[in-house]
């Protein structure tokens, strides 16, 4: 009990002294996670679309070759960035680019951090999007083709909106993983929440109280994101009910259509 009280008072005094620094770190963390996840989604959708371009026997050799090369490049990108630790990718981008370009190209810490997390997320999202596209019934594509839509239109108006809804939980997963995993960016000196914690305990040795504060903030961030994502999913699903002006004149059994009960309502 004494220890808990001591911990509590240490946490309180630490928060009073350095609360603002923690909050600033949290701000940097959430900003990096949200923006990199969004950028990763864009990259993922682009790669997912490229990987699902249909190639048919009738297509000419030029198209087949180009599509084949593009697909191979995407494949390599996904495998490399999914298969190596983000912490090392950060080191490579931040230190290797200046080294190989004789300091002609030098990214600042923030740019490097955003770039690495975005590209890394993109690699995961590429597979998520590909899986999402494959999960949509083939009939949807055929329905769109049958009214004269091109492959691009079919994707944009029919397949991707449905894909987005289906993979939204996975996008949320990535966002939450990013909130936590951006902590590895301390390796190149990006001052997000974990870096703040590390810097503070380096001076005051209050390792455990600081860890409790940091963990609490991480948990608040992720829980908030979970909640917002749930709300977004619900909004995308639209209302569970719909209004019918009159009964259906052609169906003999008018009233066959079911009024779907409101979400959560009991029968």
């Amino acid at each position: 009990m004494d220890k808990l009280i001591q911990l509590g008072s240490e946490i309180a005094s630490l928060w009073q002294k350095s609360g603002l620094q923690y909050l600033r770190g949290a701000g940097d963390t959430i900003l990096l996670a949200v923006i990199a996840t969004l950028a990763g989604c864009v990259i993922g959708f682009a790669c997912g679309i490229l990987q699902t371009i249909p190639v048919r026997q009738r297509d000419n050799a030029f198209k087949k070759t180009v599509v084949g090369i593009v697909k191979a490049i995407v494949r390599v990108y996904v495998e490399v960035f999914r298969g190596t630790p983000m912490i090392l990718q950060a080191v490579f981008v931040y230190f290797a680019i200046p080294f190989f370009s004789n300091n002609a190209v030098r990214l600042d810490v923030t740019t490097a951090a955003y770039l690495v997390v975005s590209i890394n997320t993109g690699a995961y999202m590429a597979e998520t999007v590909r899986g999402g596209i494959l999960s949509i019934d083939k009939g949807q594509t055929e329905g769109a083709k049958a009214i004269g839509m091109t492959h691009f239109q079919t994707m944009l108006f029919v397949i991707l909106p449905q894909t987005l809804r289906n993979i939204l939980p996975q996008i949320g997963n990535n966002l939450i993983i990013n909130i936590k995993d951006t902590s590895v960016m301390f390796i190149i000196g990006y001052t997000e929440l974990f870096a703040v914690h590390k810097a503070l305990v380096g001076g005051n040795y209050l390792y455990f109280p600081s860890a409790v504060i940091t963990m609490g903030i991480y948990l608040i961030l992720t829980l908030t994101c979970s909640l917002l994502l749930r709300l977004m999913e619900r909004k995308m699903d639209g209302p569970a009910n719909f209004d019918v002006a009159t009964t259906d004149s052609l169906a003999h059994t008018s009233g066959m259509y079911s009024f779907v009960k409101k979400r959560g309502a009991r029968s």
Binding site: G139, Q140, E142, G143, A146, V158, P161, Q162
Partner: peptide, 9 residues
Amino acid sequence: FQSFNLFYN
């Protein structure tokens, strides 16, 4: 189509 293929979205 037999399976309608209406756009679900």
